[in-house]
């Protein structure tokens, strides 16, 4: 059975989706991720979807749910590397993944997460969202 590998980098988890996702593979990933967050005490999750040629409502929902669940588990999720054609299609479909943070690539995703993690470590759990959220 296909399983998406989850890599641990410091206090972050990195998932790079390289295959055309079947629905149950997506659901399994969602479960695996929440388990790994608890096991490792990770503070951030990076989901790299640069290799995904489409994101439909099922995968979109998986991403939103994962972000919401990880937030409950005290970890921030950043989706990185979405392709322009995929983004245009998602917007047309009516899915804007509100509540999910995004970055252009893994590098920028890590920077975004580190900033958030540092801020929370300083006491408040307020993430500097001054311009990212409307």
């Amino acid at each position: 059975m296909e399983r998406i590998p989850i890599l641990r980098i410091g206090n972050m988890l990195l998932v790079s989706i390289q295959v055309d996702l079947q629905d149950h593979t997506a659901l399994m990933l969602q479960d695996d991720l929440s388990n790994r967050i608890v096991e490792t005490g990770a503070k951030g999750v990076l989901i790299d979807i640069s290799a995904l040629e489409i994101v439909d409502s099922f995968i979109g929902r998986m991403i939103s749910t994962t972000a919401a669940v990880s937030r409950v588990l005290d970890a921030e999720t950043v989706v990185v590397g979405m392709q322009p054609a995929v983004a245009i299609t998602l917007v047309e479909l009516g899915l804007t993944l509100s509540g999910v943070r995004t970055a252009l690539d893994v590098d920028r995703g890590i920077r975004l997460l580190s900033r958030g993690i540092d801020d929370r470590a300083r006491g408040g759990d307020v993430i500097r969202d001054d311009y990212l959220a409307e």
Binding site: D23, E53, I54, F58, Q83, I88
Partner: peptide
């Protein structure tokens, strides 16, 4: 076009499900 391909494939994915 790539965008149109992506739109069509996404629509087909929704309907197939």
């Amino acid at each position: 076009s790539l965008v149109d391909q992506t739109k069509l494939v996404t629509a087909a994915s929704e309907l197939a499900r």
